[in-house]
């Protein structure tokens, strides 16, 4: 007497869909991942682990954590302000504002690297002024922080906007009607309501600088077996363009002279 629920598919359709999804993932994600491991461990686990334990790698990890500690709070603060303004109020040009927030997603890392060199490089807009005051941004922590903030800029807002949109503003209006002021409402109502997403966002935002830094560092470790390619790897992505030591990156060396 058992029938099938009207909101699911038959066992055959279900099996086919799962198989198709897993097949796609296996082909496009799992296989490349396996290749990475097989390449990295081709010479055994020893050289691979050695590469990870160098002073270079440890310094990189420390730097990543420092950058995350600076850039994540900045972006979380921005993301919350932006999603508050966008979801709780109506104003003209909202779609334009959202698009501008999305923009760093679509800007090629090559372009964003170029931007910061144009701004803060030796011959950049602020280059002379920076040199005069003996300040270093490019090839230093401030530059990496800036680049990271730029790249991870949309993450928080992008995560929070749909969530806040769905929650509406009933809770906030209730709090205001009970006599809470704006900050109290924010601290006791909005923030707890979005805490789950906020913490997830922090993970995402931390991962981004980690990934972009790891790009230059760990790829060096992994492609130990292919020395000819290492040179080029270190110059990918914004972060590495302006963070890697000049001697290792012909591109950033030239940019800094420009």
């Amino acid at each position: 007497m058992s029938g099938r629920s009207p909101t699911t598919e038959g066992p055959l359709a279900r099996a086919l869909l799962i198989a198709a999804a897993l097949g796609f993932l296996g082909f496009f994600l799992l296989l490349p991942l396996l290749t990475v491991f097989s390449e990295a461990l081709r010479q055994g686990a020893g050289p691979f682990l050695d590469a990870l334990h160098t002073a270079d790698a440890l310094a990189a990890i420390r730097l990543t954590l420092l950058i995350a500690a600076i850039s994540v709070p900045l972006n979380v603060a921005f993301g919350i302000a932006a999603s508050w303004a966008i979801t709780k109020f109506q104003f003209p040009g909202k779609a334009l504002l959202i698009t501008l927030i999305d923009l760093p997603f679509s800007v090629s890392p090559v372009v964003s690297g170029l931007i910061f060199v144009l701004l803060f490089g030796a011959n950049g807009l602020f280059g002379a002024w920076l040199a005069e005051h003996d300040l270093k941004i490019i090839f230093a922590v401030p530059g990496i922080v800036l680049a990271t903030v730029f790249i991870t800029f949309p993450f928080v807002a992008r995560e929070l906007i749909p969530l806040m949109l769905e929650q509406g503003k009933d809770d906030e209006e209730a709090a205001i009607s009970l006599g809470a002021n704006g900050w109290q409402t924010f601290w006791h109502v909005t923030l707890p309501n979005t805490a789950g997403a906020c913490s997830m966002v922090c993970c995402c935002a931390t991962r981004a600088p980690w990934a972009s830094l790891a790009r230059s560092r760990s790829s060096r470790a992994i492609c130990g077996a292919r020395p000819t390619r290492c040179r080029s790897i270190s110059r990918f992505s914004t972060t590495s363009t302006i963070s890697s030591a000049p001697s290792r990156s012909p591109l950033s060396l030239r940019c800094s002279r420009w």
Binding site: M1, S2, G3, R4, S5, P6
Partner: peptide, 24 residues
Amino acid sequence: AGLEFQDGGSVLLGGEDVSSLPVA
């Protein structure tokens, strides 16, 4: 309606046993 299915017994609509007829 046929949105849920009984474990036992039967549903007759106009004399026709629709117990295993899908909702649609």
